[in-house]
């Protein structure tokens, strides 16, 4: 159709001019970034004090746990899977942490316990998904009910956290400049983003995850360790949920079985808005981070506005999600 020569013919080096400047795969991420800047611009234009370092810092502080969840979810969705259990695992993590601390266990042990629990849950779901060839949707839905139910086995009431180590971590402010400060949660979340970028984009494990998401059968025929990667992403997601649960218990300073209800959907929304394809095979960790920030900025806008109910956040997220899914579809159609 176009007149450009097919790359096979001739011996002349075919450079595909202009193709490399903006690879098509990055476009959705750029779109999310532009959206973030736009939303922030709207806030700056309408409200005094919106454009301040602390507002940006608060975006990270209030969403540190969601960032970690979205990072884990990105791994799963890149392989073409989904993990619905993350919100419930966050709740279970807060519950186990709070109950453990209440029982007098030392804080480091509680942290290890929670991390081990989250990873194990992820491992079990991953094994079932891969070896019994059951849809991730169903398996993680079961995992969600299981984790949510386990919360109430630990305790039906909210348990507040009084452990001094946890309290110090939760309240300590790390000053960045004169007026702006962040919490340790932000540091941890950003460290996890950095590690995830490295693992997903730079290691064989990560590249295999993309291959599995692109075409699982091909990946298998290419001799790649499909089983290890497919199970591995659920372990990562479980581990991230546990970490997010710990951050959430720092944020709330309590454990409760009704914490983080529906948070898995926020995480999925952030990942999708961040440009990751639900069908797998394409997406960036940084996109998911941007996705979370977009959700955060909407929330901030609505709180600055003052009169709107916070439920308007949900309406905005729903609209955005639809918009991005449609955009992805249109974008995919345009590709050859």
């Amino acid at each position: 159709m176009t007149t450009s020569a097919t790359p096979v013919k001739g011996k002349s080096p075919l450079a595909l001019p202009g193709r490399r400047s903006v690879p098509g795969r990055v476009v959705p991420v750029i779109a999310t970034f532009v959206l973030f800047v736009l939303l922030f611009g709207v806030g700056t234009a309408r409200y005094d004090g919106f454009l301040s370092g602390q507002v940006v810092a608060n975006l990270f502080i209030d969403n540190a746990f969601l960032i970690v969840l979205a990072v884990g979810m990105t791994f799963v969705i890149v392989t073409g899977g989904i993990d619905l259990s993350v919100g419930a695992v966050v709740a279970l993590s807060t519950m186990v942490a709070a109950a453990g601390l209440q029982a007098g266990l030392p804080a480091p042990l509680v942290v290890l316990l929670v991390l081990a629990m989250g990873s194990t849950l992820g491992l079990l779901m991953g094994l079932v998904i891969h070896y019994f060839e059951i849809q991730p949707f169903i398996v993680t839905l079961a995992g969600m009910f299981l984790a949510r139910g386990l919360c109430f086995v630990v305790g039906v009431e909210s348990i507040s956290i009084k452990d001094p180590t946890f309290r110090t971590f939760a309240t300590a402010a790390i000053p960045l400049s004169g007026t702006v400060s962040i919490t340790w949660s932000v540091v941890i979340a950003l460290a996890i983003v950095a590690v995830a970028v490295w693992v997903l984009h730079r290691t064989r494990f990560g590249r295999t995850a993309y291959a599995v998401g692109g075409n699982e059968n091909s990946a298998m025929l290419m001799g790649l360790p499909v089983a290890r990667v497919k199970v591995g992403v659920y372990v990562i997601s479980g581990l991230c949920s546990a970490i997010a649960g710990l951050l959430f218990s720092l944020y709330m300073l309590s454990g409760y079985g009704l914490h983080a209800v529906g948070m898995e959907l926020d995480a999925i929304a952030a990942v999708v808005i961040g440009g990751t394809l639900l069908s797998g095979g394409a997406g960036y960790v940084l996109g998911s981070l941007l996705g979370v920030l977009v959700l955060g900025v909407i929330q901030t806008l609505i709180s600055f506005q003052g009169t709107l109910s916070s439920w308007w956040t949900k309406i905005a997220i729903g609209t955005l999600l639809l918009l991005f899914i449609v955009m992805q579809r249109v974008f995919m159609r345009r590709q050859p």
Binding site: G214, A219, M222, G281
Partner: peptide, 19 residues
């Protein structure tokens, strides 16, 4: 049928698992 991953680059498809 081409058993490769269409979403990855040509280089990755050639060397995946042996990069």
């Amino acid at each position: 049928e081409v058993n490769l991953c269409p979403n990855l680059t040509v280089a990755e498809n050639i060397l995946l698992g042996r990069e």
